[in-house]
């Protein structure tokens, strides 16, 4: 940023330098992209969802391409909170931008424990709750599809953390606005959406799932963008807390669509794979858009859909 435009904002106590971040699970633990991205330039870094214990993840054949999209079933492979703190977190000592840790669990207790552990680490600025995780207590139904469970989860985590709290919503609900409102009522500082949609692909010759032993995966990438944009718009019309738009963003124009629809910031997922420099290009692109339109601040764009 050359300082000509105001791109920064506050999400609770966390400052975002600019409204562009990588989405959880598509950017590893940050360091994987250091040859391509100056991490210091990002609005924030969001790392892969961390669980209490390390997870080995799904069987092989975890991803397959579909028209303009990707089906992925990674099964939350991650190094676990201890591994994260010992091996991944120190890397951020030399990185000058906010750090958002995505957390996931099988029980509300697990999320709370993760939050408490991270309280001991000031380098972590925010938590993003990945509520698209199976809840063991309700037989594997995702936390984020039951309003009562969502309320309970967000309340419990809010109780134990003063870090910025972002709740990442799943699109697999009848009315996503209800869930966004619950998050707002329970004290979340922001909501982010959307996580992937479930999907399948079948190899008709072998009559087998294209994801090997994994029958289904999450559909992500450009294919989901119109749907994601629609849900983001719905949520922006409903809540007052900041909304992070996610889903199929591949260019400045895509990012601007989400901002105009009302999102305060965007997360870039799949497109990091196609162009590892895309986050920086979109930051430059947003700034260029503001300059071209004689605007001084990103706030002059957000939610200006006529």
């Amino acid at each position: 940023m050359n300082g000509l435009c105001e791109l920064s904002s506050y999400i609770g106590p966390m400052r975002l330098k600019n409204p562009v971040m990588p989405a959880s699970g598509t950017f590893g633990y940050g360091e994987e992209y250091e040859d391509y991205v100056d991490l210091n330039r990002l609005g924030a870094v969001i790392v892969k969802t961390i669980t209490l214990k390390p997870r080995i993840g799904s069987h092989p054949h975890r991803s397959t391409e579909v028209p303009s999209g990707l089906l992925a079933n990674i099964g939350l492979q991650n190094v676990g909170i201890e591994g994260f703190i010992d091996e991944k977190l120190p890397y951020f000592d030399d990185i000058d931008t906010s750090l958002i840790v995505s957390i996931g669990g099988e029980s509300i207790e697990e999320y709370v424990n993760l939050g408490k552990i991270l309280n001991g680490h000031t380098r972590v600025d925010a938590l993003e709750l990945n509520i698209s995780c199976p809840n063991v207590e309700s037989g594997g139904i995702h936390f984020g599809v039951d309003p009562k469970v969502t309320r309970n989860l967000v309340t419990c985590v809010r109780d134990i953390t003063e870090k910025a709290l972002i709740v990442k919503l799943t699109p697999m609900v009848t009315d996503i606005r209800i869930f966004a409102e619950i998050c707002q009522q329970c004290g979340a500082d922001a909501v982010s959406l959307i996580n992937g949609l479930p999907g399948m692909a079948i190899d008709v010759k072998a009559r087998r799932s294209k994801l090997g032993r994994n029958t289904a995966g999450a559909l992500v990438g450009p294919a989901i963008k119109p749907f994601a944009l629609y849900l983001v718009r719905q949520v922006c019309e409903t809540v007052d807390i900041p909304v992070f738009g996610i889903g199929g963003i591949s260019s400045t124009e895509d990012a601007m669509e989400f901002l105009i629809a009302g999102a305060s910031a965007v997360e870039i997922g799949t497109w990091n794979f196609i162009n590892p420099k895309i986050t920086m290009e979109i930051i430059d692109g947003i700034e260029a858009y503001l300059l071209e339109n004689n605007l001084h601040s990103i706030s002059e764009v957000i939610g200006t859909l006529s």
């Binding site: 598509t26 994987e32 992209y33 054949h61 975890r62 397959t64 992925a72 799949t270 794979f273």
Partner: peptide, 13 residues
């Protein structure tokens, strides 16, 4: 099958 080729997406386990 690869997503990123960079060790970030965990597709190629």
């Amino acid at each position: 099958h690869m997503g990123c080729g960079l060790g970030a997406c965990l597709s190629c386990a």
